[in-house]
Design a protein around this nucleic acid. Structure first.
Length: 501
RNA sequence: GCCGGCAUAGCUCAAUGGCUAGAGCAAUUGCAUCAUAAGCAAGAGGUUACAGGUUCGAAUCCUGUUGCCGGCACCA
């Protein structure tokens, strides 16, 4: 009888596809990938979801600027986002686009499930015809549109509203008690203080003509489309088959405790409040954890087209390779705060940690092991010809080591690593791993395994054992490098992992 | 403006109110030569933003000042 593994569901946010992906998005999806791979290592069944948000008016406008149909634009850009899978070695299981039938069906089903909390009301706002956008009073410059320098019209239209106010107390309890846990604490506090300031009902539909008909129609009222956030958030259940109430949906969402959303700090409210409220209204299960990461800046500034400082993950990988990019983002950027990218910092990290640290250690150990292997097989050949095959095991990764100090060091590293990952502290998990690398360098220096001695074999075995463990720890972070190390330990053929820059 | 957070070595960050405030990177010197000029060791680097206060004792707690950051609803 096959044992049922623990299930683990995680999602990234869905990025707008009005532009190509930048390195900030790479940060989020790489963080998610590490968590997914780590849980697979723990022998859990993992479902890792990502995708693209395509119904936004932003996409309509981007298409107009480029003079192409919206469909064509979102197809082209969504493809680019999906290409990151190969470029960054991502292991997501599903990629949902909000223009897919399964999504549309699910979003409309969620709307109907929330029906008792939805009502129609007229909405008044300041509307700029040029921008085709509503502005708030404080967004205007001297009462004029900042873009067109014209006076916006006071427009009134009927929209559907969601009774968010009704859920205020319930939401407060859920967030405060960690029934849906927001990590880190500062973000949780922000959400609580936002709830405490009083929740008003929110508008969850738009007039269809404002979006040129692009968007998901409100069930029973085709003159309106779903507000993009009501639409987009439902992807987390739609990909599991909420639309047709599939077995998959029941197993992975309704009956599964381990559900994680990974989001950027800018969209926390949509997840920590609105999404929870929609789920409560529809009487669906709630996510367990919402992990909120910071943003990636470029040379200290926000990445923007006009500043020309946007970091392109495709270029980065082309120049340095996939694992160095993963390593930098996970090691250098504090997981829950903003972190900065510069080429100088990138290359410093690369040379110090990857080339001189990990790469050099693997090279020296593999070379030592290879030399010992050659010596041994020469001796053997002189004694008796052709007893091949046994050599392989002469110098091999010992399944155990007798060196208690090394054993203890590895155990200590594993514990720190585990604790760090449970708290999404990717950088700290890597720091512990690099402490073990440094321990090995000191061990080599002390034991001098390049000198012939009786201990030589056991020293090198110990090192191979340690490196095998290091490769294992690196697997979620640097999957390709982890494989390469394991292969070199086996074949004893040294090949530079990270050539110095 | 209101609320919250942060300020520690050149850089990135540690330090339940308690030993001489610690690591890594960068830089200096010595040792080593298995290794990708990589490794190891040592010394150097500090008014813990500033000014007060509480305490036997403060980076840590309190007050004030300065600076930076975040949140403050429908960003369609």
């Amino acid at each position: 009888m096959a044992k049922k593994n623990k299930k683990f569901y995680l999602s990234t946010a869905l990025p707008y596809v009005n532009e190509f992906p930048h390195a900030g998005w790479a940060l989020e999806i790489i963080q998610a990938d590490v968590i997914a791979r780590y849980h697979r290592l723990l022998a859990e069944d993992v479902f890792f979801l990502t995708g693209t948000d395509e119904n936004s008016l932003k996409n309509v406008r981007a298409a107009e600027e480029e003079g192409m149909s919206v469909k064509k634009l979102v197809d082209r850009n969504a493809k680019k986002f999906h290409e990151l899978k190969d470029i960054l070695n991502l292991s997501f299981n599903d990629f949902i686009r909000t223009t897919e039938e399964r999504h549309i069906k699910g979003a409309q089903k969620l709307w109907k499930a929330c029906q008792k909390d939805i009502y129609k009301k007229s909405y008044r706002g300041l509307y700029c015809v040029g921008c085709e956008e509503f502005y708030k009073e404080n967004e205007l410059e001297n009462g004029l549109c900042p873009e067109h320098k014209t006076r916006p019209d006071l427009v009134e239209e009927e929209n559907y509203f969601f009774r968010l106010s009704k859920y205020q107390d319930k939401l407060k309890t859920i967030i405060e008690s960690d029934e849906a846990k927001i990590i880190p604490q500062v973000r949780k506090n922000e959400i609580i203080s936002f709830i405490n300031s009083g929740l008003e009902d929110i508008c969850i539909s738009r007039l269809s003509e404002r979006g040129r008909g692009w968007g998901i129609p409100v069930p029973g009222d085709p003159s309106q489309i779903l507000w993009t956030w009501f639409d987009a958030l439902s992807n987390y259940v739609n990909a599991l088959g909420y639309g047709e109430n599939s077995k998959k949906f029941q197993e992975w969402w309704q009956k599964n405790e381990n559900k994680l959303h990974i989001v950027g700090k800018g969209i926390l409210r949509f997840h920590g409040i609105y999404w929870i409220a929609f789920l409560l209204s529809a009487k669906l299960a709630l996510p367990k954890i919402i992990f909120v990461h910071g943003y990636l800046t470029s040379a200290g500034q926000k990445m923007s087209k006009s500043l020309g400082n946007v970091i392109d993950p495709f270029e980065l990988v082309k120049k340095y390779g996939c694992d160095p990019v993963r390593y930098f983002l996970l090691r250098e950027i504090p997981p829950t705060e903003d972190g900065d990218f510069t080429y100088q910092k990138f290359e410093e990290r690369y040379n110090a940690d990857l080339a001189s640290g990990l790469g050099n250690l693997v090279a020296r150990v593999v070379t030592l092991a290879a030399e010992l292997k050659t010596q041994k097989s020469n001796l053997k050949n002189r004694a008796s010809k052709g007893s091949e095959g046994e050599d392989e095991n002469e110098v091999f990764i010992a399944p155990e080591t007798q060196n208690l100090k090394l054993k203890e060091e590895i155990k200590k590293t594993q514990q720190k690593y585990k604790k760090a990952l449970a708290e999404f502290k990717f950088n700290e998990a890597l720091i512990s791993t690099w402490d073990l690398i440094s321990f090995c360098d000191k061990y080599i220096e002390r034991e001098r395994p390049w000198e012939k001695s009786e201990k030589q074999l056991s020293i090198i075995n110990n090192l191979l054992f340690a490196l095998d463990n290091i490769a294992q720890l690196l697997q979620p972070f640097l999957p390709e490098t982890s494989e390469k190390i394991k292969k070199q330990l086996k074949t004893k053929k040294s090949q530079p992992l990270f050539p110095r820059i």
